[in-house]
Computed example of a mutant assay.
Amino acid sequence: MLSEALSHVLKMHSYLQSRTDVRIRDYPLMRGPEEMTTILLAYVFFSVYVGPRFMVNRKPYSLKKAMVVYNLSMVLLNAYIVYEFLAAGWATTYTWRCDLADTASSPMTFRMIRASWLFYISKFIELLDTVFFVLRKKQSQITFLHVFHHSVMPWSWWWGITLTPAAGMGCFHAMVNSGVHVIMYFYYGLSAAGPRFQKYLWWKKYMTAIQLTQFIMISVHISQYYFMEKCDYQVPMWIHLILMYGVFFFLLFSHFWVQAYIKGNRLPVPKSTPKLNGSAGEPMTAVANGKHLENGNASHHSNGKILMGKVKEV
C-alpha cells in the first residue's frame, strides 16, 4: 500500500512538472509545490503553536520601527507591482475584455510573467503580518480566517501562475489588489509611526469603501466572460474562481458596512484600556478576513474580548 501511494505521488509530481509553464519554471518557489507548501505549513505551525509558546513567558516586543519600515516597504513593492502590470499589458496592449492568457515569448510577455510572480512572492512577504502579531503577543488577532487567508492565497496563486503565468484577464484582480495594498499599507505605516501622525489619518472611515470598490471592480470585470459571444479563455476554472472570490468578499464586506455604518453596531473604543501581558492597549480594528488595522494594534479588555471596528484588505 505504501509503495502504491508513493507511486501515485511520483506520478502527480511528474504531471505537475510537465504542466508547469517553462517560462516560469526557473523562478524561485516555482519548481514544484513542495517548497511553497512546506513554507506555508511551517507558517501555520508557527502561528498557532510554536510562536505563542515561544512568547508565553516573554514580554511583547515593541517593533515600532520595524513595523514602519515593513509597511512603507510594502507600499513601494505593491506600487511597483501595479506599475509593472500596467506597463506589461493593462495600460498598453490589453483590451480589458477577453484578454487570453499570453502564450508568447516576447519581452512584454516576460514582463507580465515577472509582475505575476512578484505578486505571488508578495503574499509570502505578507506572512510577516502574523509574525508581528505573535511577537507583540496579539495572539487573539490570529484567527482561523486570518491564517487561512494568508496560507491559501499564495498556495492557490502557485497553481494559477504554474499553468497561466501571463494570465490575461485572469490577473486583473492581482493588479487591483496590489493597488488597494498601496493605500492600506500606507495607512498602517502612518499609524505605526506614532500619535503625531494621527491627524493625517482622517480618511480611515473610507477604508471599507475602498474594499467594496475593489470587489465590485473584480466581479464586474471577470463577469464579462459570461456575457461575451465568444471568449476562449484557456483555463475557464480561473474565471469561475475569481468571480466566486469577488462576490464572496463583496458580500462579506457589505455585511460589515451595514452592521457598522447603517445599524451602528460598533462597540465604542474606551478612552483607556488596562495593560495586558505588559503591553498597553492600543487602538484596533477587526477584520472580516482575520487581519487587523494597525498591523496588529489592538485594545483588549481584561476578559480577553476584542473591540470590533473596521475592516482590512484581503
Rank of each mutant, 00 (worst) to 15 (best):
L2N: 14
L6W: 12
L6S: 10
L6F: 14
S7C: 01
H8F: 13
K11W: 13
H13A: 15
S14C: 08
S14P: 01
S14R: 12
L16H: 13
R19G: 00
D21N: 15
V22E: 14
R23V: 00
R23P: 06
R23Q: 00
R23Y: 09
I24T: 04
D26M: 04
D26E: 15
Y27S: 01
L29T: 01
M30L: 10
M30E: 06
P33Q: 02
M36W: 07
T37I: 04
T37H: 03
A42R: 04
V44T: 09
F45D: 04
V50M: 11
P52W: 07
M55P: 05
K59Q: 14
K59E: 14
L72I: 04
S73M: 07
S73E: 03
M74W: 13
V75S: 06
A79G: 15
I81T: 03
Y83P: 00
Y83M: 05
W90D: 03
W90Q: 06
T93D: 15
Y94M: 11
R97N: 11
D99A: 01
D102T: 03
S106M: 07
M112C: 01
M112L: 11
M112A: 08
S116Q: 02
W117C: 00
F119P: 07
F119A: 06
I121N: 01
I125M: 04
L128F: 15
F133P: 01
F133T: 01
K137W: 02
Q139V: 11
S140R: 14
I142W: 06
T143V: 10
T143L: 10
H146W: 08
V147A: 14
M153G: 08
W155V: 05
S156Q: 11
G168E: 04
M169L: 10
C171L: 02
S178L: 07
S178K: 08
V182N: 04
I183Y: 15
I183A: 15
Y185N: 07
Y185M: 10
Y185C: 00
Y185L: 04
Y185E: 06
G189A: 09
S191F: 13
A193H: 05
P195N: 01
K199Q: 13
K199I: 00
K199V: 01
L201S: 05
K205H: 13
M207K: 02
A209D: 11
I210G: 12
T213R: 07
Q214V: 03
Q214R: 03
I218D: 09
S219N: 02
H221S: 11
I222G: 08
I222H: 04
I222E: 09
Y226I: 05
K230C: 00
K230F: 02
D232H: 07
M237D: 01
W238A: 00
G246M: 04
L251M: 15
F253E: 09
F253R: 02
W257T: 08
V258E: 09
I262H: 10
R266D: 12
L267C: 11
P268C: 05
P268N: 03
P270F: 10
P274S: 09
L276R: 14
G278W: 11
S279T: 06
S279E: 10
G281E: 05
T285C: 08
N289M: 13
L293H: 09
N295F: 13
N297F: 12
S299M: 11
H301N: 08
G304F: 00
K305D: 13
L307M: 03
G309W: 07
V314M: 11
